[in-house]
């Protein structure tokens, strides 16, 4: 399932789960997992553990759960932060920082939504055509795009 043996994780720690609709699959990094290195994937990902390095999910979504802590630049289609991120957020579609979220870093995305009460320190690039999303429209359902779970590669 993973690229390099030294960072290979057990199936019990990184699991694929279906969302409530049953039509989407996503990988989950559990709260006891800590990863150092570059993480590349082609499926949606939920992080409850710690990641230090970079995270790239070009076509997919990333949810940083309330217990999640990522110290890395993140590139993904949609990025939702409920936990803590130290690093840049580059969203091809949207970046959302929920009320419980804490981000220190810069954001680049066509749409950016910060919920009141979140912690954010950094810059947001606003394009002429960009438009912020309404936080009310945000839910975990944003994570997961119907792609079949294939792999989450971790490169050391």
């Amino acid at each position: 399932m993973f690229g390099k043996p030294e960072t290979e994780m057990q199936e019990s720690h990184v699991s694929k789960v279906s969302t409530a609709s049953g039509s989407r699959e996503q990988a989950t990094i559990g709260s006891s997992i800590a990863i150092k290195g570059d993480l590349v994937g082609e499926e949606d990902l939920v992080v409850h553990g710690r990641i230090e390095g970079t995270v790239t999910l070009k076509q997919n979504s990333l949810l940083v759960g309330k217990d999640g802590h990522i110290k890395a630049d993140i590139r993904a289609r949609v990025i939702v932060v409920e936990g803590r991120v130290e690093g840049g957020l580059f969203g091809d579609e949207q970046v959302i920082i929920k009320k419980s979220g804490s981000v220190q870093g810069n954001i680049e995305a066509p749409r950016v939504a910060l919920e009141d009460g979140c912690k954010f320190k950094g810059s947001i690039e606003m394009g002429v055509a960009s438009k912020s999303a309404q936080p009310a429209a945000v839910s975990n359902a944003n994570v997961g795009n119907g792609h079949k779970a294939e792999a989450v590669a971790i490169r050391k």
């Binding site: 920082i97 950016v112 939504a113 910060l114 919920e115 009141d116 979140c118 912690k119 954010f120 947001i124 438009k131 912020s132 309404q134 936080p135």
Partner: peptide, 8 residues
């Protein structure tokens, strides 16, 4: 502070 209305 970060405010949704101001960012929007």
């Amino acid at each position: 502070p970060p405010l949704s209305s101001n960012v929007e």
